[in-house]
Amino acid sequence: MNWNRKQNLTLILLNALGNNIISLTSLMGSLVMFVSHALNRSLMPPFFIKEYGKQIVAIGWASLPVVGLTAFFTGGALALQIYSGGSRLNAESTVPSIVAIGFLRELGPVLCGLMVAGRVSSAIAAELATMRVTEQIDALVTLATDPIKYLVAPRIIITTLFLPILTGVGNIIGIYGGYLVSTERLGFNPSMYIESTFKYIELGDITSSLIKAAIFGFLISTMGCFFGFKASKGALGVGRATTNAVVSASILILASNYLLTELMFKS
């Protein structure tokens, strides 16, 4: 009797686990199909050049203020922290190089990714979900246009290409924020600060920053497009799509950042 019950419980748990694994794999499957459909079709005419132009403005250009402000303030705060922490070890002179390396390798891409996830992933999800709910996506089909090719491909491609550019700008502004705080508030000599900033930066720091950014851009746009496109009917559907897109994009950014850091910097 007791043994039987235990076996039942095990079965129930295994069953629940199995169901979760099945739904997760089927979600992954449809995600992979979705993205590969978008990217495959983007290589065939018609190319919808105008849509790409619109996305460059909406995603690339319009994200600059958010990214710039975030990077500037974080760079400044980072300089203050490293200075006060470093002073305990008499290592205040490391401020320029740690600000620069920290920004390039970690803070630049991750902050940029998270800020753009909040802005772009949600905007994409809300826009596509609204189009789904108001039958605009069905209308595209009846107008002989592939909605994944027309709507999804430009958003994924442009975000993946432009997040490295945004991150590059963010890196420069962040490092400048550190420079400004260090020279104005902490008494660093400007020319010496600049010299030691560049002394320790390696090419690998910059490329890793841009590679991370491209991957984050891909994740952000894919989550936005996927949840928006698959939204269910009603106003609830739009809200749920937006939340799901931002939360999953943010978690994926942080998780993949850890994996990428392991891959790129472990040795």
Binding site: T134, E135, Q136, A139
Partner: peptide
């Protein structure tokens, strides 16, 4: 051609 319930014009 199709006329949708809510018109479904592209915003």
């Amino acid at each position: 051609g199709m006329l949708f319930q809510g018109s479904a014009l592209f915003d």
